[in-house]
Amino acid sequence: MKVLILGANGYMGPHVVRKLAPAHQLRITDIRPAPEEIVNEFPKQEFMDVDVTSVEQVRSAARGMDAIINLSVVRQDPILAFHVNTLGCLHVMRTAVEFGIRRVINTGPHFAVAGPSYEQMDYRISPDIPPHPGIGLYPLSKSLGQEICRTYANQHDIQVLELLFYSLRDRHELEPGTGGVPFLIEWEDAAEAFRLALEVDSKELPSRCEVFFVFGDIPQMKFSNKKAKELLGFKPRQDVSAPWKRG
């Protein structure tokens, strides 16, 4: 499959590239240059400079692609957060419609759906709840982008998969007693979720826009990753429960 990756040179992108490169033809794009080791490791993959705030640049990058993975994100800049997280989704979806690209994988934080009003009060929180992002710049601007993706998926034959993450760590960082938000995953397991989302048959999904909480198996039962396991076949390999064990 020919896959455009937007925002590919941040923290998540290199892991996704390594996971997908063996089986897919990638167009790796960002406003930042790709890490040198990725360029050296994948000389046959394509690299481009693309700013997701420019619909023209997204269009030129998406030509000939079968799928788009949108990893772009801005968390703090009050203007760019909306231009990247919200309008960026508009550009992705319009481009997908124009070029007949039928699969889009969009990303965001878990609180684009499950904001403070859920997290402070509930348990077994699943991704299929009405979004309550709260009023943080990052979660709200991402949540609005997600609504745009959902709207386009409802009107066009495009399969959207929203993969929501929060805390990502290397294996060596999974130390007892370090705690954190109970929505944790190891990088390689996170990347595997992209492969599964790219390859899952749309017939196996209930609708054209599905949201998934992607995290490892942790003890709190605050959130649920059951849907990702059942629909994507997600099987986190790394035990990420250690941070909540006594040090």
């Binding site: 009050p78 203007i79 909306f82 231009h83 919200t86 309008l87 508009l90 009023i135």
Partner: peptide, 17 residues
Amino acid sequence: DEASLDELTRGTYDLLN
């Protein structure tokens, strides 16, 4: 077009803040 969408999303968010 998208300028209007931006001014209604970001504009609403910023105004309410």
